[in-house]
Each structure stands twice: as structure tokens, then as C-alpha cells.
């Protein structure tokens, strides 16, 4: 897969959707493409977060370690989804473990790079803002629903 394919792929990730292709190309060029084998962890709950991942291929489980020591798979993510961005946005430890449930190929965007790009290209920040707001809205709705029950 060449750089141009990666750019195509990035455009399908919502927060990057409206960013011009040239910037996405720079983003793709300056990030690492990594392969995680099935069963390996992309990140581990509690570790400091230093990168976000965009899934290019394969699937991963989002696993949360409960207080009682049990772990629970709370979500699954797949192609075109971004994961791990919370920890780099607000400097908290990883909130969940992400484990490859098949062989997974990701684009790893380091924290430095991510922030530098956001600083460089404000339109990206706006996109992220929108995405996060949408998620918040989603979570609030879910919470309301849960409380309503």
C-alpha cells in the first residue's frame, strides 16, 4: 500500500474527512505504519498515552479492566476508525486496552506529531472538535437513556 492509498484511507476517517489531501499526505508520510499480530496490545490501560492509531486493516477489541480485576470487552473497532486519541488529547493514562483480534495494520500518529499538525492546520482542530462534540452528544444521549431505564 503506497502513500496515496493511505491518503485515500485517511479521508474516510471522520476527523480527517474535510482536510485537504496535501496535508493528509504529509500526515501519512510522517506517521509510522505498524503491524500488530493477533493478540498483541496496541496500548495497555493505565500506560501513559503517546500516540493515536488509525486502523488500516483488521480489527481490535477495546478491553476495560474492572475494579474487581475482571476484564471486559466493551467495544470492537475496525477499518478507518481512530483509537487512543483521548489519552493524547488530555494527558490521561490509557483508559482501555486495545488488543488486536486479528492481525492489525495501523497508522501510528505520535502525540508530538498530532499536536504539531493540529497547531499547523487549525481546520483539523475544528474537525476534531466536531467529532468530539458529536461523541459527547452520543454519550449524553446514552446516559440519559441509561438513567431513564
Amino acid at each position: 500500500m503506497s502513500l496515496n492509498d493511505e491518503v485515500e484511507l485517511l479521508r474516510q476517517v471522520p476527523i480527517f474527512a474535510n482536510i485537504e489531501p496535501a496535508k493528509l499526505k504529509l500526515l501519512a508520510f510522517t506517521s509510522e505504519r505498524l503491524k500488530f499480530r493477533k493478540g498483541h496490545d496496541l496500548c495497555v490501560q493505565g500506560d501513559p498515552g503517546d500516540a493515536a492509531f488509525i486502523i488500516i486493516e483488521g480489527e481490535a477489541d477495546i478491553i476495560i479492566q474492572m475494579e474487581n480485576g475482571e476484564s471486559k470487552t466493551v467495544n470492537k473497532i475496525g477499518k478507518h476508525q481512530i483509537v487512543g486519541e483521548i489519552a493524547i488529547l488530555c494527558d490521561v493514562p490509557r483508559t482501555a486496552t486495545v488488543r488486536a483480534s486479528s492481525d492489525v495494520i495501523v497508522l501510528r500518529i505520535s502525540k508530538d506529531l498530532f499536536f504539531r499538525l493540529v497547531g499547523e492546520f487549525p481546520q483539523m482542530a475544528v474537525q476534531i472538535l466536531r467529532e468530539l462534540a458529536a461523541r459527547l452528544e452520543n454519550t449524553t444521549a446514552q446516559l440519559a437513556k441509561a438513567l431513564g431505564n
Binding site: 502513500l3 496535501a22 499526505k25 504529509l26 508520510f29 510522517t30 504539531r116 499547523e120
Partner: peptide, 20 residues
């Protein structure tokens, strides 16, 4: 051509030049 496309917009002292 690719390098010019990618890096032309960046300020000359940008770290990306050194790194990438």
C-alpha cells in the same frame, strides 16, 4: 516532486525537515 509537494508549505525551520 513528492518532497516539494509535502514540505513546500512548511516554514524552513520546521522540525519535519530534519526528521522526515
Amino acid at each position: 516532486a513528492t518532497m516539494v509537494e509535502l514540505f513546500a508549505d512548511l516554514p524552513p525551520d520546521h522540525e519535519f525537515f530534519q526528521q522526515f
